[in-house]
């Protein structure tokens, strides 16, 4: 679908940004829409907003949102690492010991993922991100059978690694 009027472009950008940042304030989301429109305007060669495929506008919206998250992550505000377990537990509506155990499990999960054989790690991370085995196979450019083997061997390795660290459950 080709989109070439300002209203149509704005509608697609707003829909994507609202979906990605549903917890942000309306003002913050509107700022991102404006930033995206500005980016498109700067790239447009002639007058007007330009002509785009919807997929390109979704790509721009994603880029604007992730850039904003990166900017905020780098700004000198209090980060999670500087908060006490009590403060973090309050943020997550959990008891401090529950929060600490869940955080330990998440750290162990990351460590164990890093220790996997590379091919199993690649297949497994896609699976944990919610991709089906055929979808992961397509992303990796591998046959489905190979991808399936890597996912299930990766899961077995991951479980063994977590158990080796004394983590039987990774409940969050």
């Amino acid at each position: 679908m080709t989109i070439d009027t300002l209203d149509q472009v704005r509608t697609v950008l707003k829909r994507a940004i609202d979906r990605l940042c549903s917890r942000w304030t309306p003002d913050a989301r509107e700022d991102l829409v404006q930033n995206a429109l500005l980016k498109l305007h700067q790239r447009a060669s002639g007058e007007g907003i330009g002509t785009y495929q919807a997929s390109y506008l979704y790509r721009v919206a994603h880029s604007i949102v992730i850039d904003e998250i990166r900017k905020q992550s780098r700004s000198p505000v209090t980060t999670s690492a500087e908060l006490s377990p009590e403060q973090l537990a309050a943020e997550h509506d959990q008891r401090p010991e529950q929060w600490t155990a869940a955080a330990d499990a998440r750290d162990a999960l990351r460590d164990c993922l890093r220790s996997l054989v590379e091919t199993r790690r690649a297949a497994l991370v896609l699976y944990l991100q919610g991709h089906s085995v055929p979808d992961a196979a397509r992303l990796l450019g591998w046959p489905a059978k190979r991808t399936e083997n890597c996912v299930y061997r990766g899961l077995a390795d991951l479980r063994a690694c977590l158990e080796g660290k004394g983590i039987d459950h990774v409940l969050v």
Partner: peptide, 13 residues
């Protein structure tokens, strides 16, 4: 559980 733990850890600089 693994998928939920992975999703819950999706924050970081």
């Amino acid at each position: 559980e693994l998928k939920a733990a992975f999703a819950a850890g999706l924050e970081g600089p």
